[in-house]
Design a protein around this nucleic acid. Sequence first.
DNA 1: TATTGTTATACTCTATAACTATA
DNA 2: TATAGTTATAGAGTATAACAATA
Lengths: 173, 173
Amino acid sequence: MMDARALRKGRPAAVTRKGRKVGRAATKPGMPKPAEKLALGALDGHLGYFLRRLQVAVFQDFIRTLAPVDVRPAQYSVLLIIEANPGRSQAAIGQALHIERARLARMLHELERRRWVERRDGDGRTHSLFLTGDGVTALARIKALAARHEQQLAGLVGPKRRKLLMDLMREFG
Amino acid sequence: MMDARALRKGRPAAVTRKGRKVGRAATKPGMPKPAEKLALGALDGHLGYFLRRLQVAVFQDFIRTLAPVDVRPAQYSVLLIIEANPGRSQAAIGQALHIERARLARMLHELERRRWVERRDGDGRTHSLFLTGDGVTALARIKALAARHEQQLAGLVGPKRRKLLMDLMREFG
DNA sequence: TATTGTTATACTCTATAACTATA
DNA sequence: TATAGTTATAGAGTATAACAATA
């Protein structure tokens, strides 16, 4: 298991052949300070604090891992939900993902510009959303990178803990 | 246990005496649509998706509950870390909470303006941070509201699950 | 040269409001 | 009158770069 810093910085923790971590001998110019640990105080009793910290670390790894395809978490979620529910309206997609319709409109313009998503007119005021052929092709590559990200996560928190966390949180998604 | 929507909207779910939820008879003007559930697709396998969803719901409850004192999660975390580590520098606080020094500088200006935090000059380029008397007084009220928020969270996810989630994530904070 | 704190800029995300065109 | 989609604006949060003062 890696430590959180390694995941955030995209650098594997130095480890001996026997699995013990190797500390830096001395502080070097480009490196951050030894980072003396402060007391958390009452913060230690707040679920939101830990949720936020882990969520930020996870998103940073996602963004770094998917940088080659320039896809951010929100875009990825929209592509997957369209894949799983082709032909639905923007309103339906937005409600499912809790994305404001204003924000979703701009995201879809971007996805349409990249030729990954197509909008067909519905009853006159609605648009039905589909992946294009290009979108399906791109999504295959994107999902492969997302799977790599998820593997890295399993390395960070441990496979069993990752599964446990997902099962604990799934009903609130 | 409440459902996520109840927490997000600050409205308790209508429940019969036998614990069954009561659905709306018909769609009313001000109310959102019935919200047909879409398939999550591959999103269902991503820890980050569930982490983000729960984290947003938790922060929204925090912000709403602490609205009377106008304190946001990041400000609250800074107040607590100063309380637990009086006299430390901005750099130390920022590293502990993963807040950029540029952002922390502006946050501290705001907290100083409200007379909650005091900066005493350190070795010439550092500032030592302390709560003022007003800060201690305000923090008592703030912590009481934060405790109410945490109680609401326990109601949302269940007390045992809340504790389990914290224990699973604590080492990554 | 490096660090601390500061200011400034840019981009993402969230939250609104206002507008159109349709129903 | 309500809904779907769009555009615009404002605020928080994040990520940089540049700068002055100090070590």
